[in-house]
Design a protein around this nucleic acid. Sequence first.
DNA 1: TTTTAATATTGCAATATTACGATGAAGATC
DNA 2: GATCTTCATCGTAATATTGCAATATTAAAA
Lengths: 109, 109
Amino acid sequence: MGASKTDFFSSDQNELAAIAKALGHPARIAIIQHLLKVNSCVCNSIVDELPLAQPTVSQHLRELKQAGLIQGTVEGNSICYCINGETWNKFGELFKTLFASYKQITKCC
Amino acid sequence: MGASKTDFFSSDQNELAAIAKALGHPARIAIIQHLLKVNSCVCNSIVDELPLAQPTVSQHLRELKQAGLIQGTVEGNSICYCINGETWNKFGELFKTLFASYKQITKCC
DNA sequence: TTTTAATATTGCAATATTACGATGAAGATC
DNA sequence: GATCTTCATCGTAATATTGCAATATTAAAA
């Protein structure tokens, strides 16, 4: 197989999984951390920040964009990337809720 | 290729990515949500909660366990699974920090 | 208009993931 | 002991991901 049976899960579950999946690669974490650190649009050379070839970085950027985590705006002949503030905060809430819904249990196996 | 170049990223980045990756499948999100909901060890039939065959569920459980998100304890001839409280809270902090480190920028592309 | 710079797309190889049937292991029950 | 139950592992097929070289695209610069 190799294909996830997404149809059998709730849209809620699929959404959370999709965001997590997008963050599930060190290069994409590195991109996100870089964007968070500079705290502005990065208008070129994200490639220079990473130990990967340009097409590979482009691919990772596309995945982050598709997941809604970042946005890219054409600016001259370069493209400016930044965190998509709206979805970022929304996704942050989803994860916060997930992690916060754990209550320590006294008796466990 | 198909293999991530993990060596070129920080352990910090690899750790975050690994947790996110483990959560990056709707079945695994469903398992986690189920464990959070019942708020105790689940001593059998996680399989019944999912639209997947038993070996597939077993595989997903193993990945969650390897990532440190859950723990399983042998109890008679069944195995009791529950959230690994310690790592769960630690990972929650990691994600919280990641998402919280975004500051709205006024001027953006 | 040619060249340059920045990024995307295509095509491909290597590897990983997802899923399941068959089978195995180990305790429980008869 | 024989059998049942529960779960893991193995083997395998289908598909997805990762990474890069080659090439395309698009706009600025010369």
